[in-house]
């Protein structure tokens, strides 16, 4: 079973990020790391290939400046090869162009039995790329997968919903988006980190994939305004006078949870 995982490389959340005032976009010029929300997809892919008893995990990414530090992390975890699309003309691409680029990268690899993406990135949060990719690739897609099994050539997915989860069966090949926390991503070993150095990563431009890079000017979406989130209000503090449990009951009753 061959699986392709879409991995986004994002600025390290541990260092303070900065917005470009002219575009309201996050600056992504520095060193990038593997988006934690994609590490779940990588782990799930590795587990599925392992369970299938053969095949390989490949990764695809779109990033500025030929950046592949984050891809190396996924390769260190066990992915065997990657395709990086890096092209100055792609700066400012909207979600649809990104989906076209990643779909092109999937085709460069000759497709796969399964394509995995995170439900949304930790720095952009559009959450629309996986479904757009599926449409472009003509694949069935299942979103918000919390557990995935391959059974007799079909995919069995527990799909997270607001009330609980749906059991979905879907033919392969397919594309799924996985929610964070569904598997425990492995730590890359030292051996894996050293091996990742020499794993092949094919670098492509938009033109290589036959994608028209629309850039800032042609983007179908724009960030109009960025505003500070409202600060969370301080909660009510009640001193315990020995009868405080009544207040707790009253409070919970007000919320209609008891």
């Amino acid at each position: 079973m061959n699986v392709i995982v879409c991995v986004k490389q994002i600025p390290d959340p541990a260092s303070p990020g900065e917005l470009d005032p002219s575009t309201n976009q996050l600056k992504r010029d520095g060193k990038l790391i593997l988006d934690e929300s994609d590490s779940y997809g990588v782990e799930m892919a590795l587990q599925l290939v392992d369970a299938a008893g053969g095949g390989e995990v490949s990764i695809i990414s779109m990033a500025p400046n030929g950046e592949m530090s984050g891809m190396r992390t996924a390769l260190a975890m066990g992915a065997v090869k990657g395709v990086l699309v890096s092209d100055p003309a792609l700066a400012g691409s909207d979600a649809l162009t990104t989906a076209k680029v990643l779909a092109g990268a999937v085709q460069t690899l000759g497709g796969a039995d399964l394509v995995i993406a995170g439900t949304e990135s930790s720095d952009g949060y559009t959450g629309t790329v996986p479904e757009q990719m599926a449409e472009l690739l003509g694949l069935p897609s299942v979103t918000f997968a919390k557990s995935v099994k391959v059974d007799g050539g079909a995919l069995k997915v527990s799909r997270q919903t607001e009330e609980g989860f749906d059991e979905v069966t879907c033919p392969l090949p397919a594309l799924i988006s996985v929610t964070a926390g569904v598997v425990e991503p492995r730590y890359p070993s030292f051996k894996g980190i050293m091996a990742a150095k020499s794993k092949p990563v094919d670098t492509k431009t938009a033109a290589d994939l036959g994608v028209t890079a629309a850039g800032w000017a042609g983007a179908q979406q724009a960030i109009v305004e960025v505003a500070q989130a409202a600060a969370r209000q301080a909660g009510e503090v009640i001193e315990d006078d020995g009868e405080t449990f009544n207040k707790i009951v009253e409070f919970l009753d007000g919320l209609k949870v008891i």
Partner: peptide
Amino acid sequence: EEHEVFRKVVAEF
């Protein structure tokens, strides 16, 4: 660089 990556992995662990 690989050693710095490894250090981060162990630190996170």
